[in-house]
């Protein structure tokens, strides 16, 4: 009993910390990486809840599709190096 509870607590900490990282990190690329950690750790709960197929679909669809698309968009909408550092805060917010 306690082992599953300990595993749940650990993964809940990972999920909540990385979700907070998604909304609090300044760089969208770092946020995308944190979103990947969140999505993978959510799949762990699906395995704990006897939904192995949904866990596999979570990893395939979200990490393999949605996260790749978001990564593409982050890369395509990055500004140039000249005005991305600190002169323009709009793209970072």
């Amino acid at each position: 009993m306690t082992y599953e509870l300990i595993a749940f607590a650990l993964f809940a900490f990972v999920t909540l910390a990385s979700a907070l990282g998604v909304v609090l990190l300044a760089d969208p690329w770092h946020s995308a990486l944190m979103l990947g950690v969140t999505l993978v750790s959510v799949a762990v709960y699906y395995v704990m809840l006897a939904a192995e197929f949904v866990a596999m679909m979570q990893i395939l669809v979200y990490v393999g599709g949605v996260l790749i698309l978001i990564t593409f968009a982050v890369m395509l909408t990055q500004r140039d190096d000249a005005d991305v550092d600190e002169t323009d805060e709009v793209v970072q917010t």
Binding site: V22, S31, T38, L39, A51, V74, Q92
Partner: peptide, 24 residues
């Protein structure tokens, strides 16, 4: 956030929260 990409990521987080509820 004001970045549109961050909107998408936040919406993904909320959808995952709903999914956890559904499967639980």
């Amino acid at each position: 956030r004001r970045n549109a990409l961050m909107f998408l990521m936040s919406v993904e987080i909320m959808v995952n929260a709903a999914n956890i509820n559904l499967i639980a």
